[in-house]
């Protein structure tokens, strides 16, 4: 995705505030005080905090065993009460409690979302820095590779790779990380091209600072805000891709619990047990919505020019 013309306008932030945030000098409003003034930011942060806390503590608080079921209570509708207590959101084909499985399923979503985005972000930022900084033919060639990667849509890229390499949590994270870097590379390269022309960068050159120093100390701080905004947007896309892959049976394999696997289980009995399909999808939607809100708020606060979804 490129930074194109006509980006969303920065709402309610003055130039000064943006500059403050980008450089990290807390001259005045900190990120925290900005958060207080934005309902979107607050809701997003609230949802994400809740999901992260659930991911950490869910195994200790689930009302039922999320992996071992009770075959006598299969396909029970929401609110069913059996010998072992109430199943708030019903049970699945093995009599497992849907609510407990949704709680535990947050672990994979968070883990995959965060780690894969970190991998993709690191590779993409380094690639973009290199390409933008070297310029010329190298830059042209490196960007053609990005074009080629982008011309195979993200989901198709990851479906093809994971279909061929095989399922598994670690492979899945690696695949999403190694396919997702292109977006960052493009955006960061564009930012580097702009930052290179700044007077203080030219000044740094003219007093004889070495290239690596110039890149790390003068250019990188300028482009990192875009990378952070993009990362927030990409977490949602990565989580959706994870659920798609697990749904297709190409992601994580049972007995690991993920929302995508729950949806796949539900699909075969969609005629009768709608609750198996409805609730895990709501969990995904709310989580990604939190990420989207957080990303929107970060973009409005930090960098109005980034759009992210390829």
């Amino acid at each position: 995705m490129s930074t194109g013309p006509g980006g969303p306008p920065a709402t309610a932030q003055s130039e000064g505030e943006v500059a403050t945030l980008v450089t990290g000098h807390s001259r005045q409003p900190s990120l925290l005080s900005l958060l207080r003034s934005s309902p979107i930011g607050l809701i997003g942060t609230g949802i994400i905090s809740l999901v992260i806390v659930l991911a950490l503590i869910s195994p200790y608080i689930v009302p039922h065993d999320p992996i071992r079921g009770n075959l006598r209570t299969r396909y029970k509708p929401p609110g069913f009460t059996g010998d072992d207590g109430t199943h708030l959101l019903g049970t699945d084909q093995l009599g497992r409690d849907i609510f407990s499985r949704i709680l535990v399923g947050s672990r994979v979503s968070v883990l995959v979302g965060v780690v894969a985005v970190m991998i993709a972000g690191t590779i993409g930022v380094l690639y973009g820095l290199t390409s933008g900084f070297l310029g010329g033919r190298v830059d042209g060639f490196m960007m053609r590779i990005c074009d080629a990667m982008l011309s195979i849509p993200f989901v198709i890229r990851v479906v093809a790779i994971s279909g061929i390499v095989g399922p598994g949590l670690v492979t899945l994270i690696l695949i999403l990380g190694l396919s997702g870097w292109v977006t960052y590379a493009r955006v960061i390269r564009g930012e580097v091209l702009k930052a290179r022309e700044n007077d203080y960068v030219l000044a740094a050159w003219s007093i004889g600072q070495r290239p690596l120093w110039v890149v790390l100390h003068h250019i990188l701080p300028n482009v990192i805000a875009s990378a952070i905004v993009l990362a927030a947007l990409q977490v949602g896309i990565t989580m959706l891709a994870e659920s798609s892959l697990s749904f297709l049976g190409l992601g994580v394999k049972p007995p690991t619990v993920t929302w995508g696997i729950q949806l796949a289980d539900g699909k075969s009995v969609i005629n009768s047990a709608w609750w198996m399909t409805a609730y895990p999808g709501i969990a995904i939607t709310i989580t990604v919505l939190g990420v989207v809100f957080l990303g929107d708020w970060l973009r409005d606060s930090l960098d109005p020019n980034v759009r992210g979804r390829d």
């Binding site: 749904f247 949806l263 709608w274 399909t277 999808g281 995904i284 939607t285 809100f293 929107d296």
Partner: peptide, 22 residues
């Protein structure tokens, strides 16, 4: 629009099957 962006499209499809087909 935010909800539409956050929703997995295939899940929306499944919900439509439940509603319109089933």
């Amino acid at each position: 629009a935010s909800i539409g962006t956050a929703m997995p499209s295939f899940w929306l499809g499944l919900m439509m099957i439940i509603f319109f087909s089933v």
